[in-house]
């Protein structure tokens, strides 16, 4: 199905985001990459937090834990799961949940997030975030799974909006409405991936601003920003691929500014997972995000309103 939105108003109201005192700081952070471990400890870049992919640290020992312990002692931490497969038709992997719980106990992160997607089926792991039809059956399943995760981890999780390349004939809800309902039913928070909102907006010919405006913005706990690659679909229409392999695009920065106007200052991650540049390049992108965060502070909004 195609989705219809009325265009959201650009009028600025008071920031709507509920903040959590124990959460991530309203600053920019970076994804933690092994090639930057030693440099981070040696230079101590001024960043709000680091984020790791949980699955990379579910190992017994060695350099990953050595460095993460030391970096965690100096920075707030976000743990981002990529393998829970919350949208899977099958049950959640209880062993994996136990491992995640142990990792969270060990590092006490300020935030834990996962994806609105599936990545496992029949015992196989596909290492990709696969799309879901948005209908009542999926909604019930996702809400059950989110509830189980929050119960086992004894914390509120943030659920990330996906980047998708196809839609389903079986969808009966639009994505924003689906997410809104998951948040309402489970009490989970939202990880607003602005790049995903943009990529999916282009891929499915929908207005990313209207999409963001329709999300439950008061429950956003973190923003993700990343770069994409451009491809074409069978009709020659642009098909954007969420590669995390390029600098953040100008259009995504604009959409980020739009989101911040509504949210107020929000913890923001610069995600880079492929073609990883030297640390200072990423720190510079984080600085850029922090300037936007600074200009979204309520006092600044009043001045400029």
């Amino acid at each position: 199905m195609t989705m219809q939105f009325s265009h959201g108003s650009s009028a600025r109201g008071a920031p709507v985001r509920r903040t959590h005192p124990d959460g991530l700081p309203d600053r920019a952070g970076l994804g933690l990459k092994p090639q930057h471990f030693a440099e981070i400890l040696a230079t101590g870049p001024d960043l709000g937090f680091f984020e790791i992919h949980a699955e990379n640290y579910l190992v017994a020992g060695g350099p990953f834990h050595h460095y993460l312990r030391r970096i965690r002692d100096r920075y707030p931490l976000s743990i981002h799961g990529v393998g829970l497969s919350i949208g899977a038709e099958g049950p959640l992997d209880a062993t994996h949940l136990d491992r995640l719980a142990a990792l969270l106990d060990r590092y006490e992160p300020q935030s834990f997030s996962e994806h609105l997607a599936w990545s496992t089926h029949g015992g196989a792991f596909f290492n990709d975030l696969l799309p879901l039809p948005y209908n009542l059956a999926t909604l019930n399943r996702v809400c059950d799974h989110v509830g189980q995760v929050q119960e086992r981890l004894r914390r509120r999780i943030l659920l990330e909006n996906p980047a998708t390349y196809v839609e389903f004939a079986a969808s009966t809800l639009d994505e924003a409405a689906f997410i809104t309902e998951v948040v309402r039913r489970t009490g989970c928070g939202l990880l607003l991936d602005v790049n995903n909102a943009y990529v999916s907006g282009v891929n499915h010919h929908r207005d990313p601003q209207a999409y963001i405006a329709a999300l439950p913005l008061s429950e956003v706990g973190e923003i993700h920003l990343a770069g994409f690659a451009e491809d074409r679909d069978a009709a020659g229409a642009p098909l954007l691929i969420d590669t995390h392999g390029a600098p953040i695009a100008a259009a995504v920065w604009e959409l980020y500014a739009f989101a911040l106007e509504r949210l107020g200052p929000t913890p923001t991650l610069i995600e880079r997972d492929n073609d990883i540049p030297p640390l200072p390049v990423l720190v510079a992108e984080a600085r850029c995000a922090e300037r936007w965060i600074g200009s979204a502070r309520p006092d600044r909004l009043e001045v400029s309103a």
């Binding site: 092994p34 090639q35 471990f37 992919h53 699955e55 990379n56 350099p63 990953f64 981002h80 990529v82 393998g83 994806h115 290492n127 990709d128 975030l129 980047a163 990343a226 690659a229 491809d231 691929i241 969420d242 590669t243 995390h244 392999g245 995600e271 997972d273 492929n274």
Partner: peptide, 13 residues
């Protein structure tokens, strides 16, 4: 830090 494969949440071009 040649650590073998890691998961990401990104696609590929």
């Amino acid at each position: 830090c040649a650590a073998g494969p890691g998961t990401t949440c990104a696609g590929t071009s």
